[in-house]
Nucleic acid binder design. Structure first.
Length: 278
DNA sequence: CACTTGACCTGTCCGC
DNA sequence: TGCGGACAGGTCAAGT
């Protein structure tokens, strides 16, 4: 589920709530969801929360890092208990049947890792190992170094791949997933089926703008909640209210009123407007 | 090497 | 109402 904007929104929420907290206990309810010795995290303090692509990191003292990947259905929800009641209760009773790991802090607040499909994971590693885990990832599209030139160079490593499939390749660009790949192609006016080798300079420029624009809009609206995604406080995101094509098969294009088409590309559902995207 | 497909899981939705 | 099949935001490994 969560793509760059969703993980970024979770990161911003956690930064406000868990920096300086001390881990008291880690409760692993589903063993495949947690790799490493969870006991090592006990008594360690949260120093920093960060994101790289769709990975979420929590740096602890003692040179430890909790690395998260939410895959399709992962959730990271923080609940601070005041007067016996959670401060917010958007997500119902916690833990629930998809809760896989609970991190208890010394002040009795808790961080829940929920994941219906069990594809996601948490790894406890030494901070020095983080780079090794993330080294295959391409550039961060919302950072300053992400120029049209860098973008073009990266895409050209996959000349025979359809544009939308290339955007999903984390080695080329970090953090774009199925929703934002569809939206980026729409915003660029580019047919998602076109091969990379078919693009000209102008196309790269429009696509670059589309990728940055779609992701920025995603962050601005707090991410996309088709079914599972919630932020660190358990609240939904509203980007899909503003989406032009994703999940809008047969609905009318917001620009030209043509019904939105859905096809398969690289095995994934792909939405686009046959009129606006060429 | 470049690219495609299936597997990993659970739940929901849709047609019959 | 029940049942089977398709599909779901991601990423690997194995196949062509």
């Amino acid at each position: 589920m969560p793509e760059l904007p969703e993980v970024e929104t979770i990161k911003l929420g956690l930064e406000k709530s868990i920096i300086g907290q001390v881990v008291q206990e880690v409760d692993v309810l589903t063993s495949k969801s947690f790799q490493g010795d969870s006991q090592k995290a006990c008594s360690q303090k949260v120093l920093r929360v960060w994101r790289r692509a769709k990975n979420l990191g929590i740096d602890l003292s003692a040179d430890l890092t909790l690395l998260f990947h939410l895959k399709m259905t992962g959730q990271v929800i923080y609940q601070n208990v005041i007067g016996g009641h959670p401060t917010r209760d958007m997500t119902g009773q916690m833990p629930n049947k998809s809760t896989r790991v609970i991190i208890h802090f010394a002040d009795e607040s808790k961080l829940f890792f929920n994941d219906q499909r069990k594809f996601g994971w948490i790894k406890l590693i030494s901070s020095g190992e983080v780079e090794e885990h993330l080294k295959h990832l391409g550039p961060e599209p919302l950072e300053d170094g992400f120029t049209v030139e860098v973008f073009t160079q990266q895409l050209q490593r996959r000349p025979n791949t359809p544009v939308k499939v290339a955007l999903l390749d984390q080695q080329l660009i970090a953090g774009v997933g199925n929703i934002y790949a569809c939206e980026a192609c729409f915003q660029a006016g580019i047919d998602p089926k076109r091969k990379i080798s078919d693009l000209n300079t102008e196309d790269y420029k429009k696509l670059h703008k589309g990728v940055v624009g779609a992701l920025s809009s995603g962050v601005k609206h707090g991410g996309s909640s088709k079914s599972h995604y919630v932020n660190a406080a358990g609240e939904k995101g509203y980007f899909l209210d503003y989406a032009y094509v994703y999940n809008r098969q047969n609905d009318l294009c917001k620009i030209c009123q043509t019904p939105i088409s859905k096809i398969q590309l690289g095995g994934r559902g792909t939405y686009f407007c046959t009129q606006c995207q060429r």
